[in-house]
């Protein structure tokens, strides 16, 4: 399915979804509360069949005071791609988990929690993935400070 048809098909499922500009793949901005239901529909719809969560990560937009969560979906049988973008408040970073729809999300979300401190509602095993449990701070946040880190001399 090409990009325009794909966006139209998803918007039929979720009318609140808006197109995100400045991307090279079809990307839709989805409200956080609608994420799980939409993902399940995308996975089960016979014309869409997004069965692979290729990756999930976050972007810290410090100036706009929000985190943008990106879910890159792909369809193995049909070969098309779609990105879902969810914006959440930086002060209260909670989103529902996608574990039940895509099992791999369990670990991808743990990585995002480890790096950005985003909390996943209903996650079965939310804990740090790469860093020790007693690590302070979330390294990939833009305002992360660590005395240990060295700046490269100019």
């Amino acid at each position: 399915m090409d990009a325009l048809n794909l966006i139209a098909a998803v918007q039929a499922l979720q009318p609140d979804a808006k197109v995100r500009e400045q991307t090279d793949q079809p990307t839709l901005i989805v409200p956080a509360h609608a994420l799980v239901a939409l993902a399940r529909q995308l996975r089960d719809d016979p014309t869409l069949r997004f069965d692979l969560l290729e990756t999930h990560t976050a972007v810290d937009w410090l100036d706009e005071d929000r985190f943008e969560l990106l879910y890159l979906l792909a369809s193995v049988p049909l070969g098309h791609h779609l990105t879902l973008s969810v914006s959440i408040d930086r002060d209260e970073p909670v989103v529902p988990t996608l574990c039940e729809v895509y099992p791999i999300a369990q670990w991808l979300e743990r990585e995002v929690y480890d790096m950005f401190g985003i909390l996943y509602d209903n996650h079965p095993d939310l804990r740090r993935l790469f860093l020790e449990d007693d690590w302070v701070g979330f390294p990939l946040r833009k305002d992360y400070e660590d005395d240990f880190m060295l700046e490269r001399p100019e």
């Binding site: 860093l131 390294p139 992360y144 660590d146 240990f148 880190m149 060295l150 700046e151 490269r152």
Partner: peptide
């Protein structure tokens, strides 16, 4: 990995 790494032991 010397610079800007928060974990690498130098």
């Amino acid at each position: 990995f010397m610079y800007h790494s928060y974990t690498t032991v130098r």
